[in-house]
Design a binder for these strands. Structure first.
Lengths: 141, 141
DNA sequence: CCTTTTTACATTGTATACAATTTAATATTA
DNA sequence: TAATATTAAATTGTATACAATGTAAAAAGG
């Protein structure tokens, strides 16, 4: 690798980490109204798409393990947004189901993407570049 | 904003968050040898550059607050990598100084950037695009 | 100069993250 | 099929993150 490229890569890992945190901070006030944290919101997005899915599959989608998901899902259960039950056909697995309240919350969350998007002043070309590179990296790692 | 752009932006926040976490996971085995976590490594990078700096300035550079830094800096102090002392000219401020051991650790860490870089199969153009867009976003947020 | 405000750090409380281990169930294979 | 290996969750322990609050010091301003 060229020296320049090495230097540049050095200036990428930290900004990526910082940017990720700053974006999550922007979500926080919007999600407060729904009584969700960012990670809980990610899980609910999966649930809005799937309605029924097990813990393992949620983890695969969100790059999270049971150590993170188990307590988080218990909190969503307390809020009556989901239910948790063992899979009778495979007792190792726990099936997560969205509730009526959970589904209803989707409407309340519907304006969040646009609000967050409006904070990103990127043009279409930049969005596509960023999308392309990030997904390429995620596949590599 | 166009619908397409909105959809794309939706597929950006989460991948950014996931990518950031995956990259940090790649650092972990390398940093284990130095008995540092990723965040501790970021602080040490600041110390290698500055030698002497106060907590507030570290926080500004790394987007971290005293709630995160105070306990982390105490751990680095226990490891004898830094010292902490009140600024006599402004008793509100705490001055962090790197120690000999702390400086010595820089050599051990010198091959980390190249090792991480080798996991990024991006060409120069992509590196520059990513760098440009991330820094643009960080400035906006 | 004295009151008010701001600043820097520490503390408290909540919520991730994740490695490592444990437990129970299922799959594999000798 | 009995022993072994693998898998899915849960648990434990450590380390962030950060909002909110507390505390003490410094700055501002009347």
């Amino acid at each position: 690798m060229k020296d320049d490229a090495l230097k540049l890569q050095n200036q990428l890992c930290f900004p990526l980490y910082a940017l990720s945190k700053e974006i999550i901070k922007k979500y926080t006030p919007l999600l407060d109204e729904l009584h969700l944290t960012y990670t809980q919101y990610l899980v609910m997005m999966v649930m809005w798409e799937k309605q029924t899915i097990n813990v393992k599959a949620i983890g695969d989608k969100l790059y999270l393990d049971s150590g993170t998901l188990t307590p988080l899902l218990k909190k969503l259960e307390v809020q009556r947004l989901i239910t948790r039950q063992r899979d009778t056909s495979d007792e190792r697995s726990v099936i997560i189901q969205i509730t009526e309240s959970g589904l209803a919350l989707k409407e309340k969350a519907s304006d969040i993407p646009a609000k967050i998007g409006s904070m990103f002043n990127l043009n279409e070309e930049e969005l596509i570049q960023l999308y392309t590179i990030i997904h390429k990296l995620l596949k590599q790692l």
